[in-house]
Each structure stands twice: as C-alpha cells, then as structure tokens.
Design a protein around this nucleic acid. Structure first.
Length: 124
DNA sequence: ATTAGGG
DNA sequence: CCCTAAT
C-alpha cells in the first residue's frame, strides 16, 4: 500500500546537510473533515486516541496527533476570511460545527479534564 | 503509549 | 507535519 509514504529530505536548519525521512503531505479531504468533526462532537477535544479509533481506525497514515493538529487548523480556518483559506474548500456547514464543538468542549474540558476517573474517584 | 502545545 | 515535555 502506501508503505513508501515517506519523503527523504535534507534535514532543515542543519549545518551539515544530513538526510532524514518525513511522512509525505496528505491534505485532509472534506470527507475526512466530516468524519473528524463528527467524532469530536461526540468525544471532545481531549481524547484523540479514541477519535482516531472511532473515525480513522482504518487510516494508517492518520495518527491521533495528526487529528489533534487537523482540529487546530480547522478551528483556525473557521475563523479566518474564506478568501484566505487554501485547498479544497471545507463546507461552511462543517466549519460552523467546528466552532460550535470547540466552544462546547472547551468549557467542558476546563471543568473536568476527564480520563483518570479512577484517580479522581479514589480521591473523593 | 497518550496528552498537550509549541516548532 | 514534526518535536517532545509531562503523564
């Protein structure tokens, strides 16, 4: 499959041009964004591992870190003028849902960072 | 191995 | 995407 999805490039910012391999660029499709938004609306912004399993379990090249990063750019994209956005345009409908979910989970995360319930329960 | 943020 | 400190 995409086993050779790595790019051999000169190590940036290095005196001696060493050579390192980085993953190739894979712009998120609107379909992927839809899946990501759907998952975050349900799971929130503090459980990217679960978001990965829920919506990208079969996308070997999308790690939970990638999904976290994509969400960051989506929130930014939703906030800038449509004219300064790049790539295949993301439906405004999705961008609206991004801001909505971001606002909701933002406060939800501030209240209870979830996870480690055992830790919390033990202390209560 | 994950989370969370800056690079 | 990468890098990585803190869990």
């Amino acid at each position: 499959m995409d086993v050779e999805a790595l790019a051999v490039v000169p190590m940036r910012k290095s005196k001696r041009s060493e050579v390192v391999q980085r993953r190739i660029r894979r712009p998120f499709s609107v379909t992927e964004v839809e899946a990501l938004v759907q998952a975050v609306e349900k799971l929130g912004t503090g459980r990217w591992r679960d978001v990965k399993l829920r919506a990208f379990d079969n996308a070997k090249h999308r790690t939970y870190v990638d999904l976290k990063d994509k969400w960051k750019t989506l929130v930014h994209t939703a906030r800038i003028a449509p004219q300064q956005r790049r790539g295949e345009p993301v439906p405004q409908e999705l961008l609206d849902r991004v801001l909505k979910a971001h606002a909701y989970w933002s406060q939800q995360q501030a209240k209870q960072p979830l996870k480690q319930q055992s830790e919390t329960c033990r202390l209560l």
